[in-house]
Design a protein around this nucleic acid. Sequence first.
DNA 1: TACTATTAATAGTCATACTAATGGAGGCTC
DNA 2: GAGCCTCCATTAGTATGACTATTAATAGTA
Lengths: 218, 218
Amino acid sequence: MTTFDRVLDDIGLAIVRGELAGGHVDTVDGFVARTGASRSIVREATRVLVSLGMIRAGRRVGLTVLDRREWQLLDPVVIRWRDASDDRGRQRQELRDLRRAVEGEAARLAAVARSAVHLATLGEAIGALDRAAEARDATAFLAADRLFHASVLAASRNAMLMRLQSVIDEALRLRTPGTPVAWRAAPGDVRLHRDLLAAIERNDAAAAGEIMATIANG
Amino acid sequence: MTTFDRVLDDIGLAIVRGELAGGHVDTVDGFVARTGASRSIVREATRVLVSLGMIRAGRRVGLTVLDRREWQLLDPVVIRWRDASDDRGRQRQELRDLRRAVEGEAARLAAVARSAVHLATLGEAIGALDRAAEARDATAFLAADRLFHASVLAASRNAMLMRLQSVIDEALRLRTPGTPVAWRAAPGDVRLHRDLLAAIERNDAAAAGEIMATIANG
DNA sequence: TACTATTAATAGTCATACTAATGGAGGCTC
DNA sequence: GAGCCTCCATTAGTATGACTATTAATAGTA
């Protein structure tokens, strides 16, 4: 980890943790003193923090720490910082809600688009899901499930939704060791996935959204 | 506009426009020559671009332009760049889809939470909407509509959804001059908003989501 | 051929000097 | 006293040069 990373992390975490509260004013030299790094490094870090909406720079006034509602809450680094703060629980709940929204909309869009190549991929994923459930292979089941969800997102043909999902997935995987699959739920789960594919195949956006919501809530 | 802003914009736009395609390798000195700015400024800009997932820095290899799927597509500055590129149309469509997802989920969450203070705000917004429709005051109608949607988001109590909406709204407002309100649709619109509030009041998340989708699609 | 040592290219870091906005203090006018 | 102007100290912004550390590529060796 470079000096830059250390400095950025130090300041970013301090802000997220409230150690440097919104409204607090500091200077470049202040951060130089705080971190022990050179002015160049501190300036590079502040540029990134400004781009993340966490501080504002003003000549003759210094660096003002901004309020949480200005932050780029969807940026991976901000998410990581919040995950290492007291906000952790709240953020994880927000991420789960967000994932429902993303996957639901992706399912609807997939149903609207209904491209042949994507349908094929989804079919394959369901086949893998089925085989893994029969073989009671938890690892394979998880992998197939991931493939299925990724395929739905790809079928939505919306790069922003895909980006959002990858950010969410990475964030929710943080510190979440192997989640054991509840095998009792597996057969119903496979059936729901099959239903979702059917809804997409018959262009039924509303049903696809509903089914995806059921999958997410289960 | 500072030198830094110029440099960042120059490189960022060049990447988004494909002038600097994914896989292209350059160096700090290369960008210094290209932009005419000092090394300090170029380094600050590259740090931000790295944080946006648009380039990767490697010792002895230089700065590699990354592929679109690595970009932080939800960052306001990336959105602005794409809005100034050939991607503009596609991005706007993606943003509209995303907004549907966000507002739908917000409505569902608002129905689940059903907080008194938020219900009051929503009631006020509907009152304003009603009065504006009766007075045929387009400006007031638009303002009340904005207030209503912002209130639904606030009622969802999800900071990430709120952030997302503000990013989307700003992006879709870019270069979109005063959209004339279709007055014929107004009465039905007000009724839908009233229905949405009713669904939230009776804790009916599914209905709230549906109605919001109808509003968004109309 | 496979493995190792060397080298050169390049980002990373630091220090220093200078430039240019700008918020605010103090004074001036009415 | 209120409002406006002038000046100044403060602070971010910009530029330059020197040095460090990493590492991909190359040459050398068994």
